[in-house]
Amino acid sequence: MGIEEGVKVFVFTNALALHGKVLMVDTITLPESKFPGLSKTMLRERPNTLYNFYQDAFGINITGTDERLRVARARR
């Protein structure tokens, strides 16, 4: 999204699950200026995927992503 340094952002965690089992956890950062009025309630109660939510609620179509991966040894 071309987020510049110093810009106010929303940061939240999104867990993807299948049959009640969490498969993936993402930390997502979005610029506040492109998502005015975004709230925890809106994110939790969205009826569909995040990409669909961005389109329906804010008129934003996601056409690409930048994903970064971090690996660490799990503790007991």
Rank of each mutant, 00 (worst) to 15 (best):
G2N: 15
I3K: 15
I3H: 14
E4D: 11
E4Q: 13
E5Q: 12
G6A: 12
V7H: 05
V7K: 09
K8W: 07
V9H: 06
V9Y: 07
F12E: 01
T13W: 12
N14C: 11
N14H: 11
L16C: 03
A17Q: 04
A17M: 01
H19D: 07
K21V: 12
L23A: 04
M24P: 00
M24D: 07
V25R: 11
V25G: 04
V25A: 13
T27Y: 12
I28R: 00
L30K: 04
L30D: 05
P31W: 03
E32D: 04
S33R: 10
L38Q: 03
L38T: 01
S39K: 01
K40W: 03
K40P: 00
K40I: 01
T41Q: 07
T41Y: 04
M42R: 02
L43G: 00
L43I: 06
E45N: 13
E45V: 02
P47N: 13
N48L: 12
T49M: 12
T49W: 13
L50I: 15
Y51I: 08
Y54M: 15
Q55T: 08
Q55V: 06
A57S: 09
F58V: 02
F58Q: 04
G59H: 13
G59C: 08
N61P: 09
N61Y: 15
I62C: 13
I62K: 14
T65W: 01
D66Y: 12
E67S: 14
R68G: 08
L69D: 12
R70S: 10
A72Q: 11
A72E: 11
R73M: 08
A74S: 03
R75T: 10
R75F: 12
